[in-house]
Nucleic acid binder design. Structure first.
Lengths: 257, 257
DNA sequence: AAGTGGTCTAGACCACTCT
DNA sequence: GAGTGGTCTAGACCACTTG
């Protein structure tokens, strides 16, 4: 008999209901919430294995099948990664394979191996537009990072990244430069912030003078403007970035379903 | 005991194996293949209900749980749509809700209600580049459609659409003009061609003279170039289109996971 | 051989829709 | 009330990894 989580067959119904909110939370969703809680609490870190399904089932007082369904959803959301015979692991952006999980830029030909060049890393006050997106107050402490990505020596991406100062205390240009691999890997390892999902708004824009010089294109050249809002557990927005992509030798790849 | 499909516990292993191909097909994937077969054969049409899980389980000689897992995957791929209490339905692009399932263009403010303007619909020989994408031969019979999409009276999208002539026999400008809703709905209803998945390659480009006039922007203005290759069952490419999006009042929205 | 996730089954009951 | 999909359980066995 389930002990810790309440049974859906009992009194555990969600009686309070907002507009369109579900009227009923199945047991496996509650288990899913408990697992997410463990991840948020840092019980298991990025890349580590979580307990086996049978262990979790025993801990939560439910059957293996119920744990399995909870883990299935988390695996579908790329929060967890299953490996048959080995266990279930906390997903990480620092994986050797498939670097830059959120970067959809693909070269027209050949493989990718991006070089990074840090331009700037400074403390800033949040501009109103960015504060709103991150659910902060205008003027709150933030960190702004600017950097270039190069492919075969040519600059292809100019990123302007905004992070809440409260979450990324002690982030400096040195630490960013020392670190290998994507920033998101550093954020996980050093600050316990996992990016699990993001929204992008894409537009075509003309390069201004400063951008044109950095990306080595003509002033007025068409560029892809990619505004990304990244979320951690609980749909909490924790990063805003604006990328300008030069699409002469690369394209943005998307899959529709 | 399962009858029609072979049991994975028996001799049904995939013994032939290509590079990286799976060495083992679980029963539910075979069931999934049988359901897809029924869809391809036109046994159930777009928007119609397929048989209940218990019926399918009886037909295929497996348990309900195995059918359920097959349907789960097809629902995750948006090939089928489940509706509790009612049944499982063949997904359609002609739904009242969420028109234009593959169109990711969103207005900066307000709701969308797109007007369509057909520019051209003609028989053509396949250019080499397009034939290659559609796995056809250069010079094969094709139909080329050009059209504009308007939002609040302003042109926002210029589409150039290429379809294999063999699959869309009898497609004329009249039928395209008469039809209400997305083209993909017409393709399903009239030609039995379901688009279930697509890949897009996105770039920023400068408007040429003809495009500028049609979209009412300046020559050289930055536009989003969206090349879409659409697939039907069995990963068969059946449409290539190139859209030019004006992103002054709209943006391309994408979700990353 | 032991432990992990993956598959398959059978049965019970719940939530939702329609008649 | 009957029929649908949705949840949960318990148990058996398979596939894969590691010692």
């Amino acid at each position: 008999m389930p002990a810790s989580p309440q049974l859906p067959a009992d009194t555990a119904r969600d009686t309070a209901r907002a507009e369109g909110a579900p009227s009923f939370s199945p047991l496996y969703r509650q288990i899913k919430g408990l697992i997410i809680g463990g991840l948020q609490a840092g019980e298991w870190k990025a890349g580590e294995a979580i307990p086996s399904e049978l262990e979790l089932a025993a801990r939560f007082g439910v059957s293996q099948g119920t744990v399995r369904k909870a883990v299935d959803e988390l695996a579908a959301e790329s929060v967890l990664v299953r490996r048959q015979g080995k266990g279930t692991f906390v997903a990480t952006h620092a994986e050797q394979k498939i670097q830059y999980r959120f970067l959809r830029l693909v070269p027209d030909e050949g493989a990718e191996s991006l070089g990074r060049q840090l331009l700037d890393c400074r403390r800033q006050r949040a501009p109103a537009a960015i504060a709103r997106q991150l659910q902060m107050r205008s003027g709150d402490a933030m960190i702004e990072v600017r950097r270039l990505l190069h492919s075969k020596g040519q600059p292809v991406v100019l990123d302007d990244i905004w992070l809440p100062g409260a979450l990324f205390k002690g982030l400096t240009a040195e630490r960013l430069e020392q670190h290998r691999g994507p920033f998101y890997g550093l954020f996980e390892a050093e600050f316990g912030v996992h990016m699990i999902r993001a929204q992008e708004k894409i537009r075509a824009v003309a390069a201004d003078a400063e951008t044109a010089e950095l990306l080595k294109v003509a002033v007025g050249a068409p560029l892809l403007s990619v505004e990304r809002l990244s979320f951690t557990y609980g749909d909490k927005p924790v990063e805003f970035r604006r990328g300008l992509y030069s699409t002469a030798t690369h394209f943005y790849r998307n899959e529709l379903n």
